[in-house]
């Protein structure tokens, strides 16, 4: 009897994330890659600002790097609204094209410097705004060519500055705050760090399921293909795949000391990525067509299956599932 009590006392209440491994192999390489690719994007735009291949390639590569870390919505990405300055989406009221049209029609001199550009509407900044200038026919010819060129160069400079600030903060001190929580830091205990990482995973999955897939799907009677993310550059499906791959790495790391659970999670992610791989509709334009809609719905179901395992089994493994109200958010 005494032995059992002793054993129970020695058992940890819940597993903790291997934070150092997640920081060293996922977060730091991710933010570094984003800053480097954003710098390349800016250099490319300075050399040739026409919306043609070299610039579009650099844009695509840098955008990939953002999507890969876009679930890490805490700390450095939230300072000064940096994540929103890179990614103003979903844009339910069309604020981005409105803000860009206004700048272009007035040839607003605020676009002369990246520093000044920080004061424009946040909807006119970042990858999603830049997509209009590179891919949307309503913008690729709008206003004066010199102004468009300046706008593209300034927007890429702004993206480069923002991503550099994120990377610097992570490398500078935030990584340490996550690895070594302390009473006066943003995280007081390892359990709070685990909770933050779990939240990044679960809200990342929610965003991919409900927003990246749910917004274009709409309802069967009212599909919304024009709401697909980055549809102008045919990146909608790609973002789902990139985010799932990144979230898979995070989920597997969070379950690293529970091989069976890790196996289940791996299976579910692999399944979802397979379902995604069978879709030949990069911008989800086909959500209004019953047959191709079905494939996008199947992908959403596969992501929901991951969410279920994460919300129940991984949450209980990490001891973050206690709150019926705590997790509700209302």
């Amino acid at each position: 009897m005494r032995l059992i009590v002793l054993l129970l006392a020695l058992m940890p209440l819940a597993a903790l994330a291997d934070t150092r491994q997640i920081v060293d192999t996922q977060i730091l390489p991710g933010v570094t890659q984003l800053a480097e690719r954003a710098e390349t994007l800016h250099k490319t735009a300075r050399q040739n600002c026409t919306p043609s291949m070299p610039l579009k390639d650099a844009y695509s590569t840098a955008f990939d790097a953002w999507v890969t870390i876009s679930h890490l919505r805490f700390g450095p990405t939230e300072t000064d609204d940096r994540a929103f300055a890179l990614a103003f989406w979903p844009d339910s009221r069309g604020a981005t094209p409105k803000a860009l049209s206004k700048l272009i029609s007035q040839s607003d001199p605020i676009a002369q410097t990246a520093q000044g550009y920080r004061d424009v509407s946040i909807a006119a900044r970042g990858f999603y705004a830049l997509e209009f200038l590179l891919y949307d026919p309503a913008f690729t010819d709008a206003g004066k060519p010199e102004y468009r060129c300046q706008l593209i160069q300034t927007m890429t400079a702004d993206i480069a500055l923002t991503t550099r600030a994120i990377a610097q903060d992570w490398h500078g001190s935030y990584a340490t705050k996550l690895i070594d929580p302390s009473a006066d830091g943003p995280y007081r205990t390892d359990q709070e760090v685990t909770q933050e990482l779990f939240k990044a995973l679960s809200t990342g999955l929610q965003f991919t399921s409900e927003t990246r897939l749910g917004r274009p799907l709409g309802t069967f009677d009212k599909p919304r293909p024009l709401r697909a993310e980055a549809r102008r550059s045919d990146r909608s499906l790609r973002h789902v795949e990139l985010s799932l791959s990144a979230l898979q790495s995070l989920a597997l790391a969070l379950a690293s000391d529970a091989p069976e659970l890790q196996g289940t999670l791996d299976q579910r992610f692999t399944k979802a990525l397979e379902v995604a791989g069978r879709i030949q509709d990069p911008s989800f334009a086909g959500v209004a067509d019953p047959a191709s809609r079905l494939r996008v719905e199947a992908l959403q179901s596969a992501v929901e299956a991951i969410r279920l395992t994460v919300g129940l089994d991984l949450a209980s493994h990490l001891g973050v599932s206690a709150g019926f109200n705590a997790l509700d958010g209302d």
């Binding site: 609204d81 339910s92 946040i122 399921s209 409900e210 749910g214 799907l217």
Partner: peptide
């Protein structure tokens, strides 16, 4: 929020 995208928040920066 919009019911098509569940409980996802659409306008946090603004």
């Amino acid at each position: 929020t919009h019911p098509d995208s569940g409980r996802s928040k659409l306008n946090l920066p603004t």
